[in-house]
């Protein structure tokens, strides 16, 4: 294909905007990683003293370790519950011809569509009303409500792509409902559930706006980071930040790799 001069100019111009966007989006990340390795103070950056020292310090910080533990526990439990709910809901909506199908979907998507502050404060007031004190359990509930939408969406898409005759064939060959789920439906859903779980974990790890309403005295990594940042600058923060970034990038890449072939196959 030939390109005229104007087209070239447009291309270059758009390319510059894109490059600028990349710069703006990635600068924070690069800046952070550098500062976590290289100490700096009012007098400038001390390039020569780069070290992993702050990473070691982090391991000794008990409140950080506790926050990491809470974050992991919360996300694993919330994602597990949400995955089971998503599978049941999706199967019910898609196959059983659920009454109020649209309404159910709308309710499931609400925590994801609405600003998180709504989900956060509504659950806060609800728990307060029924006398449940805030802690890990309430955070888990909030995260479940949030990530359910993600998992539901992915499971439903996969379920729709699967011919219903497979289920009929299984029953026809004498399988019980449970056997059909175990041998036919689950193997079909598994990839979508795993992708969804990774994505949901990434969301849960990072969740701040809902968690802050439901945490009480408990802290998670984002809350701990927020707290540390309010106090002021510490290289320790940058170390923690870099670890958090690394983990989230790894999860993002896993999701991307898993979703890509699926996109290629679905014509």
């Amino acid at each position: 294909m030939h390109k005229t001069n104007t087209e070239h100019l447009i291309d270059v111009f758009l390319g510059l905007i894109t490059a600028g966007t990349f710069f703006v989006l990635y600068m924070p990340i690069v800046v952070n990683s550098i500062f976590s390795l290289v100490p700096s103070d009012r007098n400038g950056i001390h390039w020569g003293e780069a070290s992993f020292e702050w990473y070691w310090r982090l391991l000794e910080n008990e409140s950080v370790i506790a926050a990491i533990k809470t974050t992991l526990i919360v996300s694993v439990i919330a994602v597990a519950i949400a995955a089971i709910l998503a599978i049941i809901l999706a199967i019910y909506v898609e196959w059983e011809g659920a009454v109020f199908q649209r309404t159910i979907e709308l309710v499931v998507y609400t925590p994801f569509l609405m600003p998180p502050i709504i989900t956060g404060l509504s659950l806060l007031m609800f728990f307060d009303r029924i006398g449940i004190s805030r802690g890990e359990a309430t955070i888990i509930v909030g995260h479940t409500a949030l990530v359910l939408a993600v998992l539901y969406r992915l499971v439903l898409t996969r379920l729709r792509a699967m011919p219903h005759t497979l289920v009929e064939a299984s029953a026809d060959l004498g399988a019980t409902r449970l056997q059909t789920f175990r041998y036919v439906v689950w193997p079909q859903l598994r990839p979508a559930v795993i992708t969804g779980a990774v994505l949901a974990m990434a969301v849960s790890f990072d969740e701040t706006l809902i968690t802050v309403f439901l945490a009480g005295d408990t802290t998670t990594i984002p809350l701990r980071l927020w707290g540390m940042m309010r106090v002021g600058f510490k290289p320790e923060i940058n170390a923690l930040v870099t670890i958090v970034l690394l983990v989230s990038i790894i999860m993002a890449v896993i999701t991307a790799i898993r979703i890509k072939p699926a996109e290629g196959n679905e014509e």
């Binding site: 011919p163 005759t165 497979l166 009929e168 064939a169 299984s170 026809d172 060959l173 004498g174 399988a175 019980t176 056997q179 041998y183 036919v184 193997p187 079909q188």
Partner: peptide
């Protein structure tokens, strides 16, 4: 037993597993 128009073979199972499915369950 039905032979479906689109065959409805289980895509994640081998020929052997597909054929044996009715006995397996």
């Amino acid at each position: 037993n039905t032979v479906f128009q689109d065959y409805a073979l289980f895509p994640h199972m081998t020929v052997e597993q597909n054929v044996g499915y009715g006995l397996m369950v």
